[in-house]
């Protein structure tokens, strides 16, 4: 039982970062109906910006570097959309998808050249976790779970309580109708990329705090976040969050009984099983999922 509680908490830690990364995927999908495969790499860049600001050059306090990185990464996301995706907005979705893969290669290579291929670490002091009942948890892990929940709450407020949020939901619902009612789709799309990228930077930085930085880390984030998004239901932001936590928890519990070589198989196996029963994912609508087949 004690071990079960610890496994659950470990799953929450992993799930929190997956969920944060998955939000950006889901938001972009709900607006533009394509999977932004560069999203994991954007998270990786965000992590490196935090590292650069806090450790390598300016020695800013970690929280300052963290928020500045979210801001800079938001700008990066907006630029990527402007340069690489907007010219292709009327092109078949496959073209945008392929471009996204190319963008991820460019970002990975750029970081590798600028920062080096070796592993970087934030060198936070390693400490044994606090005991909360039978569970051990470190301050960094509390921050990971706390920050994940905080950003999700902020996102919820943004989407439901602000004008921008309403505009985003309107464009996601029906782009032409939204534009007819005077909403500037380009501004909304830029905002979505900005918010998604900022959250990706947060996810990347938190993952980096926990398990070091490598230019190749974006791919792993992409794999997990993609599974989370499809599991939760394409286009459903809340579904993506739930999906992220489910995958994190199931992986950690699963490795307890079966060899770790199956870890990613667990995530995708769950995904396939869920899609058998709910083809649109847990919270997605069939219409949204149907878009993939067009």
């Amino acid at each position: 039982m004690d071990i079960f509680a610890q496994l659950l908490v470990n799953g929450l830690i992993a799930g929190g970062t997956y969920a944060l990364a998955a939000i950006g995927y889901s938001m972009v999908y709900s607006i533009l109906k394509f999977i932004n495969f560069a999203h994991g790499s954007i998270a990786m860049v965000g992590a490196y910006i935090t590292f650069f600001l806090a450790i390598q050059s300016l020695h800013l306090p970690l929280p300052a570097a963290f928020f500045l990185s979210m801001l800079l990464t938001a700008l990066l996301g907006i630029s990527v959309e402007r340069i690489a995706y907007r010219p292709l907005r009327r092109a078949p979705k496959l073209a945008t998808l392929t471009t996204a893969i190319a963008v991820s290669f460019v970002l990975d290579a750029a970081v590798m050249i600028l920062m080096g291929a070796d592993i970087k670490t934030f060198s936070l002091p390693v400490m044994q976790g606090y005991s909360i009942g039978p569970v051990l948890i470190t301050p960094v892990q509390i921050i990971i779970i706390g920050a994940s929940l905080l950003f999700m709450l902020l996102l919820y407020i943004l989407l439901t309580r602000t004008k921008l949020g309403k505009a985003i939901r309107a464009v996601a619902d029906d782009p032409s109708l939204a534009e007819a009612s005077g909403i500037n789709a380009n501004v909304v799309i830029a905002a979505v990329f900005g918010i998604g990228s900022a959250l990706a930077a947060a996810a990347g930085s938190l993952i980096g705090l926990d398990t070091n930085l490598q230019p190749t880390m974006g791919f792993l984030i992409t794999i997990k976040a993609f599974a989370a998004v499809v599991l939760g239901g394409l286009g459903s932001v809340y579904g993506a969050i739930v999906g992220g936590f489910i995958i994190g928890i199931v992986e950690n519990l699963g490795v307890w009984v079966i060899p770790p070589v199956w870890k990613d198989t667990i995530a995708y196996g769950i995904l396939i099983l869920v899609l058998f029963v709910w083809p649109a994912g847990l919270f997605g609508s069939v219409e949204e999922a149907g878009v993939l087949q067009q």
């Binding site: 496994l7 470990n10 830690i13 993952i207 926990d210 950690n252």
Partner: peptide, 16 residues
Amino acid sequence: QPFELGAKDFRTEILK
């Protein structure tokens, strides 16, 4: 206990 090349989260393996 085996674990995988390229993984980042080994907590369950460690707990085992």
